[in-house]
């Protein structure tokens, strides 16, 4: 696996510099514009996976490098796993780089310390892994257009859910209460320190989602013709 990650990093090394540059811009921006912490965290959790998946995939498509990658002595399943691990590594590295940059060059330790709280890091990991898990099958199946399709799908899903919740009758309907309970849970989580039991449940659910989408992505990738 190490040689796979090394391969992906060498092939996309220019992207690493762009990532770093992007993080620098981001941290300066949230400091300058006084973006609230929660907003920044949320934003980071969605943008990093998106950027990561998109840029690696776009490069691979531009150079038709899948022909090379699939011709190497390996199999399709391993390639998907390598792509996933590399993506996580990049997301994590970008996050840490951002923190370091802020610590060394910015004068807002309060802001920084909020990011360093275990809860923040957990939320970041949770949201970014879920988002990446959601995107992965789309990207594996459709390539770079998969990113767009995935985002559109997410939006459509959100809109449909909201519409359904709104247009249903005023009586207590399941969907509405389901949505409310989710929103309340997230609010609760953000406002309080969660119990260990809750954390464990969250962890396993997130892991389950990730594993499912990963296996599904492997399945999809094995069926592609290049």
């Amino acid at each position: 696996m190490l040689k796979h990650i090394r391969r992906e990093l060498i092939f996309n090394q220019t992207q690493l510099y762009i990532f770093a540059g992007y993080m620098i811009v981001f941290w300066i921006w949230i400091d300058w514009q006084d973006i609230p912490f929660r907003m920044s965290l949320l934003f980071l959790s969605f943008v990093l996976p998106l950027f990561c998946a998109a840029s690696i995939q776009a490069r691979e498509e531009k150079f038709k490098a899948w022909t090379l990658n699939c011709s190497l002595p390996t199999n399709r399943k391993t390639l998907v796993l390598a792509r996933l691990i590399t993506s996580w590594s990049l997301i994590f590295a970008a996050f840490v780089f951002g923190l370091l940059f802020s610590a060394l060059f910015q004068e807002n330790p309060a802001f920084l310390s909020q990011f360093l709280e275990p809860k923040s890091i957990l939320i970041f990991l949770l949201l970014s892994s879920l988002f990446l898990a959601f995107l992965l099958p789309f990207v594996i199946r459709f390539g770079i257009s998969g990113v767009i399709i995935g985002l559109v799908a997410l939006q459509v899903l959100g809109v449909i859910t909201l519409l359904l919740a709104q247009t249903s009758s005023n009586k207590d309907n399941i969907l509405r209460s389901f949505l409310h309970s989710i929103i309340n849970t997230v609010k609760f989580f953000l406002d309080h320190d969660p119990t260990p039991g809750f954390l464990l449940l969250l962890f396993f659910s997130a892991a389950a989602v990730n594993i499912f989408t990963f296996k599904f992505s492997q399945f999809l990738f094995a069926r592609r013709d290049f």
Binding site: R59, K64, A65, L68, T74, N75
Partner: peptide, 17 residues
């Protein structure tokens, strides 16, 4: 994987970065 480690390929369209 085992077989591909013994195969060298030269494709008609370049596939490198």
């Amino acid at each position: 994987a085992e077989i591909k480690s013994q195969i060298g390929f030269v494709y008609d369209v370049p596939c490198f970065y």
